[in-house]
Every structure is written in structure tokens, then in C-alpha cells.
Amino acid sequence: MTTQRARRILKWTLGILGGLIVAAIAGILIWSQVGVMPAEAGPLAAVQDDPAITAHDTSAGIVLEPADGSGDAGLVFIPGAKVDPWAYASKLSELVAEEHLTVVISRPWLNLAFFDPRPLADFTSLAPDVETWVVGGHSLGGVRSCQLARDADGLILFGSYCANDLSASGLPVLSISGANDGLSTPEKIAAARHLLPEDAELVEIEGANHASFGDYGPQPGDGPVTISDEDMAAELTSLVGEFFDR
């Protein structure tokens, strides 16, 4: 084979590989923007109109703070895949209004926490006066929160489980799941239990499914829901509030 022919074959091969890479990137970008589950209008409006809550929407995340400035502890919450971050505001709002916590709901790159390499500090810096930070997340956001947990004071999983080993971390951990969750099923959560510290607290909410942790409507593959939004929010507020009071 001549040198000139070898160069042509190399250029042709590199051209094909380059085209495949560009096509793959374009496909991911398009897929990440299609089918994003929006926040339901009613619950969102209730949060935005609540005089007890001050909301700031930034490019990095949504910051919900007690209007009286009393939030000295905070939760960084990472949304599930392709869910509008605002869809979690209502379920977390009583933590702000009643428990006086600051809540930062991140805006994952490409709507997928898996592709978001930013450290926890990028989100805690949105509320610089808060000293104690717990990280948590829903679904894929919970998996990502496990990866960030060593930089936090605690971890809360919402319908999720870890993929990395935190069993020897010494972190306080709360895992909240839905008995009817068809995606992060009770079986999947039990199978990943060994990745959490021995003293991690696991709580299963009866009647809750995967979508019960937010307000974005039904989700394909999910189980039935029999708990009301009001009761679900009250359960989350109680469980998370007690976790912060430890």
C-alpha cells in the first residue's frame, strides 16, 4: 500500500469517526431537551405566591429561602432526569416556610444530573450565609447526590439509591421511598442498601409512587399513587425536618 493511499484511508476513517461523534452528541442534545416533564401550574403558583418564601431563579439553580431570613441550614436538591426543577418546589416548600430551611434546587446540565460535573460548592454558594448543608435528590438526581455527599453534612435520598459506596463514610443518611414506586422499586432500593452506612434510616411511604416526590404528572412505568399531594408533602416535611433536627 502506498503512503498516499494510506493517508486517504486514514482521513476517510477519521472523517467517519468524527461524523459519528458529532451525530452522537447532537442526538444526546436533542434527546435531553425533548420530553422534559414540566412543573404543574397550580402547585408552582402556590409556591411563588407564598409570602413566607423568597424565591430566586438563577442559571445554576432555584433558591427558596424563608422570607424572614431565618434559614441557617440548607438542602441542595438535585432533580430527576428530564424533570423541570420547579416541579419539586411545592413538595419542598413547607421545609422552607415551616422548618426554616434554605432549599437550592439545582438545574442539571442537559436536564440530566449524570452529565453535570459541578461540585456541591457551585450550589451552596447560591446561599452563602448557610453553614450546614445536606445534599439529596430524586431518582437519577439522588444517584448524583450520593457522589457529592462526602462534601456535605448529610444525605437524603428521595425515591432513589446510591451507585457508589458510602458504607464507611460515617454520614447521616435518610432514604425516603414510595411503596408503589415502579422505577426506583423497593427491590432496587433494598439491593443497594449495603452501599449506605449501617445506621442509615430507610422510610417507605405507603401509597406513594415515583412521581409523588414532585409535581409533574404521571410518569411511564410508574406504579399507582394513592396518597394525596398534601399528605405526601406533609410526610416529606416531617421526615426531612426531623433529620435536620438530629
Rank of each mutant, 00 (worst) to 15 (best):
Q219G: 05
S177K: 03
L157M: 10
S160F: 00
P218L: 06
G214Y: 02
A190W: 00
N180G: 08
S184G: 14
I176Q: 09
I156V: 15
V203W: 03
P220K: 04
E201I: 15
P220Y: 10
G178T: 01
S212Q: 11
G159H: 05
A211I: 10
T185D: 08
G182K: 01
G142F: 09
F158Y: 13
D215V: 01
P186L: 06
H210D: 04
A168R: 11
Q219R: 04
L157Q: 01
L155W: 00
A168C: 00
A208I: 14
D215G: 11
I189Q: 13
C146Y: 09
E198R: 13
F158Q: 00
Q219M: 11
L166G: 03
L166W: 03
A208C: 14
L174Q: 09
F158L: 11
A211C: 07
V173G: 09
I156H: 04
L157K: 00
E198P: 02
A152W: 00
V173M: 06
P218W: 04
F213M: 14
V143H: 09
G178I: 04
P197L: 08
S145Y: 04
S184D: 02
P172Y: 03
A163K: 12
A192D: 12
L148M: 10
S184T: 12
I176G: 11
D153N: 15
E206D: 15
D181T: 04
D153Y: 04
Q147C: 00
V143R: 10
S175I: 12
A163F: 04
I156Q: 02
C162A: 15
A192G: 07
E201A: 15
S160G: 02
E206N: 12
N180E: 14
E198Q: 14
L148D: 02
P186W: 01
A190D: 09
G159V: 05
S169D: 12
C146Q: 07
G207L: 06
C162L: 05
L196T: 12
R193F: 11
